[in-house]
Design a protein around this nucleic acid. Structure first.
Length: 488
RNA sequence: GGCGCCGUAGCCAAGUGGUUAGGCAGUGGAUUGCAAAUCCGCCUACUCCGGUUCGAAUCCGGACGGCGCCUCCA
């Protein structure tokens, strides 16, 4: 597929500004996004992050880039607190659930993928597991030690932050430590309080452990991403994404250790903002997180996606019932236009019609506006607005009924290629409607109802409509007869 | 305490130094047997105080308010 003309700019956290996006290799993009730690249910925070990056990757592909999308699965438990002490959270959960840690990781990995599939998040190309890349991580640690950027103390290996002067470039922060306030005690064997763990000695009943040059242990929090991103995308690659909360220290540490052993690393850093629930931060420690399974019980996937995408990925979103309802109602309007286009195209003439020019112009404008919005750091709220603005002329032209089939289909294609292909919120109108066994009978009921209306038996006609509505079938009378659709 | 973000009409949410973003809700009308859908209208905001400017919601300073990260988190 040829690369489209585009003016894609992305906000790079490294420069804190929008930059023209130029991949390393013409027409190809390598992207790494920090994935989940698989020890509990997938929640709305994951949805915000991975739907955002899903749309980013979809758009890059839409532009014609050949994308390799890598997302890690963290199945090596890291520690429950800052001082690099305490229990490994995966191990803790495994103990509570009486499962082997790997069994637990596998369970939640499957649930994660299930929930992402349900949200129409396209799968990454590679989901490397941290546990499957221990030797790569050890290699990096050994190299860091050889270069004098890391040191071992009693089986623990730490990265020496003072040995890397660029530390803090990404986040604008040096350390979380020196400041006043309630900080946890720094582990005594670090040479500098800012130093972070590369390898931890496995103590006591720590089940997940590997043999290393420093004894039995497990890798530190940050090194897996350095190891796996470079392994699959190369020493220098295009995009590294993740949640804002990972900017510091996680990504800062990744940059330090990766650049200490190689050149380049990620060229563009993209960070998505967080999600609140009813105005309050959603956090695991607060216990108020909504799982994706919960959310999908109340809302369909496209509503959730539309809701998330109506806020820019770098802005915080606030999950409220009203917000979801608003998204749902708005989406209905979009879906209605696509259905109407599909129906009109089915019977439209193929030769040129008087309305072609107007609809064609509106289609071109919608297409251009959408791309301009997405080129501007993936501005999905404006991209969606472009679709909404397209609905009005579409309905006007459809009411006039004077457009040819080709032009109608081109209009429909904007909704499908952009609204569905890029944003994933338009569904497949054919799939949504077709194939239900009850369909012929519903059609029959409407034929009968129409005859009742001719006979002015409105009471009975209304009852049929009401009963169908109760069963999820919405009837609409038009001047061309009645039509119906299933409510989503 | 350190770093950073934000305050936009009833709600959500983009945004540029000077042409009403958009959506939801509400509301008037057209259409309809009544609805639904659709169309035509209405609802035209930018926390406050200074400053820069011919002109600022948009730039600068300050105040107030809210939030995030600094601890596992997406």
């Amino acid at each position: 597929m040829a690369l489209r003309d585009h003016a894609l700019h992305v906000h790079n956290t490294l420069s804190r500004s929008k930059e023209r996006f130029e991949p390393l290799a013409e027409g190809q993009v390598g992207i790494y996004v920090c994935g989940p730690t698989v020890y509990s249910d997938t929640h709305l925070g994951h949805a915000k992050s991975y739907v955002s990056f899903d749309v980013i990757v979809r758009y890059l592909r839409h532009l014609g880039f050949k994308v390799r999308y890598v997302q890690n699965i963290t199945d090596v438990g890291h520690l429950t607190d800052d001082a690099d002490e305490g229990e490994d959270k995966l191990g803790k959960r495994a103990r509570l659930d009486q499962m082997h840690p790997m069994e637990l990781a596998e369970t939640y990995t499957r649930l994660y993928l299930r929930d992402m599939d349900a949200l129409k998040v396209e799968r990454a190309d590679i989901y490397p597991r941290a546990s499957g890349h221990i030797s790569e991580q050890i290699n990096i640690i050994e190299e860091l030690m050889e270069r004098g950027n890391a040191y071992e103390v009693g089986g623990n290996v730490y990265f020496s932050v003072p040995s890397w002067e660029a530390y803090g470039k990404l986040s604008g922060r040096q350390s979380s430590e020196q400041e006043a306030g309630h900080r946890v005690e720094v582990r005594g064997d670090k040479k500098d309080p800012r130093d972070f763990a590369l390898w931890k000695v496995a103590e006591g009943g720590h089940i997940l452990r590997w043999k290393s040059p420093w004894g039995w242990g497990f890798p530190g929090w940050h090194v897996e991403c350095s190891a796996m991103s470079v392994k699959y995308l190369g020493e220098t690659f295009d995009i590294h994404g993740g949640g804002l909360e990972n900017q510091f220290p996680h990504h800062e540490c990744e940059i330090a250790q990766s650049n200490a052993v190689g050149d380049g690393f990620a060229r563009y850093w993209l960070h998505n903002n967080m999600i609140n629930v009813d105005g309050v931060k959603m956090g695991k420690s607060l216990g108020n997180f909504i799982t994706i399974e919960d959310a999908l019980r109340d809302h369909d996937p496209e509503t959730i996606r539309a809701f998330l995408l109506m806020t820019h990925y770098r802005s915080p979103a606030n999950y409220t019932t009203d917000g979801l309802t608003s998204a749902r109602n708005g989406l209905d309007r979009l879906h209605g236009a696509v259905r109407a286009l599909t129906e009109a195209a089915a019977s439209a003439p193929t030769d040129p019609q008087p309305g072609d020019a107007a609809l064609g112009a509106a289609t071109a404008k919608a297409d251009a506006d959408f791309h301009a919005a997405m080129d501007d750091d993936f501005n999905t709220p404006i991209a969606i607005a472009a679709l909404y603005e397209f609905v009005k002329p579409v309905n006007q032209l459809l009411a006039a009924g004077n457009a040819s089939q080709g032009v109608l289909l081109a209009a429909q294609d904007v909704f499908m290629a952009l609204g569905e292909g890029v944003l994933g919120i338009m569904g497949d109108p054919a799939a949504a409607d077709g194939g239900m066994a009850a369909d012929p009978f519903i059609d029959l009921l409407l034929v009968v109802r129409n005859e009742l209306k001719q006979l002015k038996s409105f009471e009975l006609a209304d009852r049929i409509r009401a009963d169908l509505d109760t069963n999820g079938v919405e009837v609409k009378d038009t001047k061309d007869g009645a039509s119906w659709e299933r409510r989503s």
